[in-house]
Each structure stands twice: as C-alpha cells, then as structure tokens.
Design a protein around this nucleic acid. Structure first.
Ligand SMILES: Nc1nc2c(ncn2[C@H]2C[C@H](O)[C@@H](COP(=O)(O)OP(=O)(O)OP(=O)(O)O)O2)c(=O)[nH]1
Ligand SMILES: [Mg+2]
Ligand SMILES: [Mg+2]
Ligand SMILES: [Zn+2]
Length: 617
DNA sequence: GCCGTTTTCGGCCCGACTGTTTTCAGTCG
C-alpha cells in the first residue's frame, strides 16, 4: 500500500528534527526547509505518493532534493539520508529535544562531553552533578531541567487541549484582565483565535501603559498555579489544569501589530515579515516601519558594502541596547494601531484570523480571489434544535422558539430525536402531536417560521427511522450517525450515501460523529460523499458544538471547493446553546466557506424554495 | 534545502526571557 500524505509528512518531520540535532542549531536553514516541506505536504488534498518527482518539486517549499527523497521513500520505503541521520543520533536524542528548555545546542554538548543521549542517562547526570558542571550551564539550569523532566507530558504544550476547554478559559482570562484599570484592551490570540481544534497554549494580549501592574494582577488570578517565566512584557504560566498561558503586554498604540503577531500563525507571520522586507519595511509586534536606505533588502551593489551594524554607529547606541518592549525609535512607523492598517500598508486586504495558516490565504488575498466569508450576522435561522420532548433536550418547545426569536432568527428547524435513538426518541404519534403544537405556536407568535423536523438516525445499513411516507410529512430532516462508529470505510460511506440520497433528507448532521479529543468518528470516502451532496442538493451541516466542529474545517474547505451547500446549526439542547452559532461560523470561516454557500444565510423565501427543490417537490 | 516581476547565489522574521556570561547564547514565542 502506498504511504499516506500523513506518512510522508511524518518522515519529513523526522528529517527536520534529526537535522536540527545534527546541525546543532534551531535556526539551521535546512531544518526550516524540511519543516516547510512537511507543512506543504500536510496541506495537499491529493495523494502525494502518486506524484512524480517533478510534480512534487513544483509544490511550494519542496525542491529537487526533497522531491527525490519523497520518491525514494514511496518507492523503497526508506530514505538513505534519514537512515544516516538515525544512525548518528539515537532516538533518545529526539526524546531529549522534547524536554522544555533543552535545545539542539545543549543536546549536542550532552552527547559530546558526557555521552548523554537519552532521558535516563540525563537523569543520572543531573543527579551526580555532571550537568551543572558543564560549560555554560549551572545549578539553576540543572534544577530547571530536573523539573522539566518530572513534568514531562503534563503541560498543554505537549498534550494539547481541545478547543472546547481552551476557549472558555481564554474568555474568562480576558474578562478578568478587562476589569483591571491598567488594561486598555485585552484579547485572546494564537491558535484559539485562529480556531484550531486543539490548542497548545493560550495566548492573551493586553494593551497597557503599565505592564508591571497588569503582570502582577495576572499572576494573582485564581486559576494560575505556577509561573514559567515573567519579564517586563511577557509572562508564561500554567493553570492548575496544566494549561499554559502566555500573556503579552504592549503599549496601546501597538495593539494592532501585536494582535497580528500574537495571532500568528508563525508561518503567516514569517510570510508577512518577508513581504515587508521586500518593500523596504520591517514588521515586528510593535509596528510596521520603514527601514533606513542602508538596511533595505536589495543590498546596495557597491563593492565592500557591509550591512552589519555592529562595531560602529549602531542606531541609538549610546551604551545601551534597544529598550525592550518598544518600537525602534529611529524608524518611521507605517502602521501599528490595527491589523487592517498593517495589512493595507503591506498591500493586502484584511485576512480573517481563522485563515492565517499560510496555506494559500496570502496568495488569495493578493489576487483578490478571497471569498466573502460567512459572518454571524448573515445567519437568519438555526436548523438543528432539540427540545425536552426527546433525548437530553433541556428546554421546552416554547422557550426554544422564544430564544430563537430573541436571537433574531426568521426561521427555526425543530429537530427532536426520531424513534430509533436509544435514549428517548419520539414515536410517530408523538411527532404528529408535536407538529400540531408547532403549527399553533407559529400561528400565535407570527414572528418566526417554524419548520417541523426531526433528527433521524442513520442505521448501520443506511436505513432511517419511520418510513418514507411518514418522512415526507416533515418540513426539514437532519439525518445523523449516532451508532456503529467503527465499521470499515466502505460500509460507513454506503450508510451516509443512502441518507444523502433519501428524497426527504435535507441535511446530514455532524458528518463524522466525532467528539474532539475523545472519539475520532466514522471513516468516509469524502470524494463520494461530497459529490453525492452536490448531486442531490442535500446540505452538509456545520455543527456548532465546540466538542464536535463537524464537518471539520478541512471537510468544509473541500466541500466549498466542490460547490456543496452547507447549513450552520447549533444542535442546541438548551436555550443558551443557541448562542453557539458563532462557533459554527468561526469553523466555517476556517474552512473558507463563502456566505452564499450557507443555506441559512438565505431569506426565508429562497431557503424554502431550495428545500422544496432538494426534496424533489 | 529553497528560492527569484530586480537575484540561479546569498540570503533566509524578529524579539523576550533566563542563566550565565562579562557581553551573550540558547530557547522559546
Ligand atoms: N514572528 C514569529 N512569530 C511567532 C513565532 N513563534 C510564535 N509566534 C507567534 C505566532 C503564534 O501564533 C503566536 C503564539 O505562539 P504559540 O507557540 O502559542 O503558537 P499557536 O498559538 O499558534 O499554536 P499552539 O496551539 O499554541 O501550539 O506567536 C516565531 O518564530 N516568529
Ligand atoms: Mg498558543
Ligand atoms: Mg504561546
Ligand atoms: Zn442533534
């Protein structure tokens, strides 16, 4: 069997790690090159193993040398260069690289001077004092390493935490910081703002004239358990749950540049900074600024010209280094207050935070081909909602409808669980009774269209609840997988295809049935599933539950490309959960989903005629 | 190792914090 893209990416990752150890430098350009190649492979949707060397070399970040290595891996199952590196550096050294505070330089030193090449021998060397005695190291470093080894695998940096844990924590911390007088603005950034599914650490940004006071107050917050490091502008801590939080405090005028920096991704930042340099500018977390002529990139072609500033006339060098936490004062600031201003000064339209992964968003922005992404305010309805009539619904029908109206919805899909669900699905009689109540409520209120629907259970054989005639009586039907999550991909695809092709089914709920961090969900042949969705018009749901985010951003991206119609739904089981729509919106944006491909952005009339068309009426 | 609407060679983002150093290297964001 051909290696998967993930296999190829993993091999490139190991080449990067081993090269870092081999070269003894975190800045080694070969390391960066392998990392970029790895990211490039991870972003491919087609099968990399089927590509020729020249096709591979055409991918960005992959050249002749890496293309040949990938082919060598696909054809022979191994790579000579990788085997050589493995022979020189036992896996123990890769283990050492995962210890926080241990980098390639120190690992090289440990091997050379002490023969320490793995965790157990490092422990021994720490215990008998050999580490503290090494040149450039001391007692404190040894203590820090001991602690780091003890706590290996306990920090979120190593385990990562699901977004549904990280995001509420980030919101609590921001709210707490906003209450401080010294704080002018606070926001979470990093992977939470980009809406990644799992989070290594929280990154929280504050604008303030008084960073010391902010830092002190932050360290005093109840959720904070220990301090990793704390300086004038940057503090890192661990919560009692082991979640790392990085706090950055910047002057208010730099808030936009700092938010841009702290939101990342790292790769996106580097691309922007390279772009700045090509324009004679320099970008950091304080500002986009103009470089002096003699520091601009196309180095002056005079012979003997030297860009090095040390040794003489260092700008502002009157015996002290550039003050930390400030813009270089000798440079003309071009933009710093808002992210929009920085992008504009770089010749780019604003790029949505959810897209900033350097997987084509900068090129799309530059070309002006970035789609109008869906926003919360575009949504006119919610199409997957439960009441206390079924399952674990906790709110009455009346309260759910009132909650939907309060949130400005023009239509609401009531989709209680159908009879096949083990936990309290609704019988035919029950459904008919509920339908009468729904009709009455709609009449009485007159301020919202109520679609009487159900959430059907896709059986292991693709069958659905009730029968075809009964199903034809609903206004709106979501069909979801709630059981048998571990069948082979062929069976799972067949089940879902049967539901998509059913004439009465209007949407497929939480496509994979995954629970982030708990259950991977069913395997599907996405090609066939998405094609069938396009063919039948059946919508794919973007489930807004933070534990699900299903369809995933990756599936959404692929579906968006093929012209699939989506709906963004809360799957609310209580009134408060109707607010979860913002999470579905963020995930849809991460998938690059254009507003017009989301059916519940459409006015009621357009929405209903689309439903009628899907049901072949 | 990659890459080029100036470059096929000579660059490669830029800054904060810690520990160790006497002027900065290493690691991390
Ligand atoms: N310019 C630049 N920015 C960086 C670098 N490393 C990190 N950043 C910025 C961009 C990141 O999104 C932001 C926060 O760093 P993190 O290590 O917390 O990464 P991020 O939050 O993206 O992912 P995470 O889920 O925490 O692993 O800091 C870097 O090497 N250069
Ligand atoms: Mg982070
Ligand atoms: Mg961080
Ligand atoms: Zn549901």
């Amino acid at each position: 069997m051909l290696p998967s893209n993930a296999d190829v990416a993993r091999v490139l990752g190991e080449l990067a790690v081993l090269s870092e150890i081999d070269e003894g430098s975190p800045q080694a350009f070969r390391v960066r090159a392998y990392q970029n190649a790895q990211r490039s492979i991870e972003q491919q949707t087609g099968e990399v193993a089927r590509m020729s060397a020249s096709q591979l070399a055409g991918l960005k970040g992959i050249g002749r040398s890496t293309a040949d290595k990938i082919r060598e891996y696909v054809d022979t199952g191994s790579i000579r260069k990788l085997e050589e590196l493995r022979a020189r550096h036992p896996v123990g050294k890769q283990e050492l690289l995962r210890v926080p505070g241990l980098g390639p330089k120190t690992i090289g030193l440990l091997d050379e001077l002490l023969g320490v090449r793995d965790l157990p021998s490092l422990r021994a060397a720490l215990d008998d004092g050999r580490i503290a005695a090494l040149p450039g190291l001391g007692e404190k470093t040894a203590d820090n390493l001991r602690r780091a080894i003890e706590q290996l695998g306990l920090s979120s940096k190593q385990t990562r935490v699901p977004l549904h844990v990280a995001k509420p924590l980030a919101e609590r911390l921001v709210a707490a910081l906003e209450r401080l007088d010294a704080v002018e603005q606070a926001a979470y950034a990093g992977s939470v703002r980009r809406f990644r599914e799992t989070i290594g650490d929280l990154d929280v940004l504050v604008a303030s004239r008084d960073p010391a006071t902010v830092t002190e107050a932050f360290l005093g917050l109840g959720e904070i358990a220990s301090v990793i490091g704390s300086g004038a502008t940057k503090t890192s801590v661990l919560t009692s749950e082991g979640v790392q939080v990085d706090l950055r405090v910047v002057p208010p005028e730099s808030f936009g540049a700092a938010l841009l920096y702290f939101t990342g991704s790292r790769a996106h930042n580097i691309r922007l900074r390279q772009r700045a340099l090509r324009r004679g500018l320099t970008l950091n977390e304080y500002a986009l600024a103009r470089l002096p002529e003699d520091e601009q990139e196309p180095a002056a072609p005079h012979v003997g010209e030297d860009r090095e500033a040390d040794g003489e006339a260092d700008p502002g060098a009157d015996g002290e280094r550039d003050a930390t936490g400030d813009t270089r004062r000798d440079l003309e600031v071009m933009a710093q207050g808002t992210e929009e201003e920085v992008y504009a000064a770089l010749g780019l339209p604003y790029i949505a935070a959810e897209l900033r992964e350097d997987d084509g968003e900068i090129e799309a922005a530059e070309a002006g081909t970035a789609p109008q992404l869906v926003e919360r305010a575009d949504l006119r309805g919610d199409l997957h909602d439960h009441t206390d009539w079924s399952g674990d619904g906790r709110a009455s029908l009346e309260d759910m409808v009132a909650g939907a109206v309060a949130r400005g919805h023009a239509y609401l899909g009531l989709t209680d669980h159908a009879e096949d669900l083990r936990i309290n699905g609704i019988s035919r009689d029950g459904m008919l009774r509920q339908r009468r109540l729904v009709r009455e409520l709609e009449q009485e209120r007159g301020d919202i269209r109520l679609l009487h629907g159900a959430e059907l259970n896709i059986g292991v054989d693709g069958s659905l609840d009730y029968d075809a005639e009964f199903l034809a009586g609903f206004d709106w039907l979501v069909a979801s997988v709630h059981s048998h999550f571990t069948r082979p991909v062929g069976e799972q695809t067949a089940r879902v295809l049967a539901a998509i092709r059913h004439p009465s089914v209007t949407a497929i709920g939480h496509l994979h049935g995954r629970m982030i961090g708990k259950r991977p969900g069913i395997e599907l042949d996405l090609d066939r599933v998405l094609d069938a969705a396009v063919e039948t018009g059946t919508a794919i749901e973007v489930n807004s539950n933070l534990r699900r985010l299903d369809a995933s951003a990756e599936v959404i991206r692929e579906g968006a490309r093929r012209g699939v119609t989506f709906v963004i739904s809360t799957d609310a089981h209580a009134v408060g959960e109707l607010d979860n729509l913002r999470h579905g919106v963020a995930n849809a944006r991460r998938g690059g989903l254009p507003r017009d491909q989301v059916a519940n952005t459409w006015p009621l009339e357009r929405f209903e005629s689309w439903v009628a068309a899907v049901r072949g009426a």
